[in-house]
């Protein structure tokens, strides 16, 4: 209110006016949430221009969504772990092992399909539980604990499957493959897998934003010692969080096996990095304490759009990873620029 243009005798040094600070910052926050989405739209638009006939069609879009399912579900789980400031390198091979277990339960043991699915998902949770115990109780750094689990799970998948794919019977187990490729909405051509991803994302969203698990997750990532001293059993909650992440990779394993109609004992490596990439592109900070499920889903979509679009405009396979790498650097760099600006002013 007392805007002081310095008096006449005073040699007035030029003043730096940073008016409208409040509004600017509110906008900046909104932008932050929209940034990943903006990136997705931009990339989508670019491919649509490059290939107007094929890329933006209904069938191709369902294609993209379909191909985003596995990485998407994996990255939902990874989000929770990364918010604690940890990392889960075992989610890729954990997913493969869960798929092999699903086939073992259903094909080898002859359990009902639904039971096999439930057990396989729980098996993924068990892998996560072991990770959680190693991190929280044994005190191993998450990188090491889950690196070890990555090797163990990858190895066990080979051992249990006898190094060969296990095929589901196209008659007896048709309900299993329908989980991925069937159409719950008849005639829409809209694969069930996408519905599974959506449901999983909603569940993850609710857990992160509406439950104590979500609050503790963020709290542990913000300041683990302070959280513990506030009377929260951090070890217990870490184990729960890693188990939750494992459960999501169990689900991803089931979805992958259902899509392929078989459980492949190899090929899991690399998925964990795609999942981490999706999480990071979505704005979750690797140093913990901050994260968003919506962002992660968008991150997974960005990866799927890039892979699909590059294929359509016939960029050779070997260039896809190069471009994905560049996208990661650019998005995270922009994200950091934004946060740096908001913290220093």
């Amino acid at each position: 209110m007392s805007s002081t243009a310095p008096g006449a005798p005073a040699p007035a040094p030029t003043t730096v006016a940073a008016g409208g600070d409040a509004k600017a910052s509110a906008w900046r926050q909104r932008l932050q949430q929209l940034a990943a989405l903006g990136g997705l739209v931009l990339i989508f638009a670019a491919f649509s221009i490059a290939s107007p006939q094929v890329f933006p069609t209904y069938s191709n879009i369902t294609n993209i969504l379909f191909s985003a399912v596995v990485v998407g579900v994996l990255s939902l789980g990874a989000t929770f772990v990364i918010i604690t400031g940890g990392i889960d390198l075992s989610c890729g091979t954990g997913m493969i092992l869960s798929g092999v277990m699903a086939a073992t339960f259903i094909v080898t043991w002859g359990l009902p399909v639904w039971l096999g699915i439930v057990l396989a998902i729980l098996f993924g949770g068990l892998i996560g539980l072991v990770n959680g115990v190693n991190v929280a109780i044994a005190g191993l750094p998450p990188f090491i604990a889950t690196l070890a689990m990555m090797l163990v799970a990858g190895g066990l998948a080979l051992v249990i499957s006898n190094k060969a794919p296990i095929y589901f019977d196209s008659q007896d187990h048709s309900s299993f493959t329908a989980l991925s490729t069937g159409n719950l909405i008849p005639g829409s051509g809209f694969p069930n897998a996408v519905i599974v991803l959506l449901v999983a994302a909603v569940i993850a969203y609710v857990i992160l934003s509406k439950t104590i698990l979500g609050r503790y997750d963020i709290s542990i990532g913000s300041n683990m010692e302070a959280t513990a001293l506030s009377g929260i059993n951090v070890k217990k909650w870490l184990i729960i969080i890693y188990s939750l992440a494992g459960t999501f990779s169990g689900l991803a394993g089931v979805m992958l096996a259902a899509r392929l109609g078989s459980a492949q004992p190899t090929g899991g490596q690399g998925y964990e990095l795609q999942a981490i990439a999706a999480v990071v592109i979505g704005g979750t900070s690797l140093s913990g304490g901050k994260g968003s499920i919506v962002g992660t889903v968008i991150g997974a979509m960005i990866i799927a759009v890039i892979n699909n679009g590059l294929q359509i405009i016939s960029v050779p396979q070997e260039w896809q990873n190069v471009i994905l790498g560049v996208v990661i650097v650019v998005t995270v760099f922009i994200d950091q620029l934004r946060t740096r600006r908001t913290t220093t002013t």
Binding site: R215, I218, S219, S222, N223, E225, A226, T227, L229, G289
Partner: peptide, 13 residues
């Protein structure tokens, strides 16, 4: 700062 606050979270939390 070290054992109490979650600096980047709201007062409510």
């Amino acid at each position: 700062k070290r054992y109490g606050l979650m600096l980047a979270l709201p007062v409510t939390h």
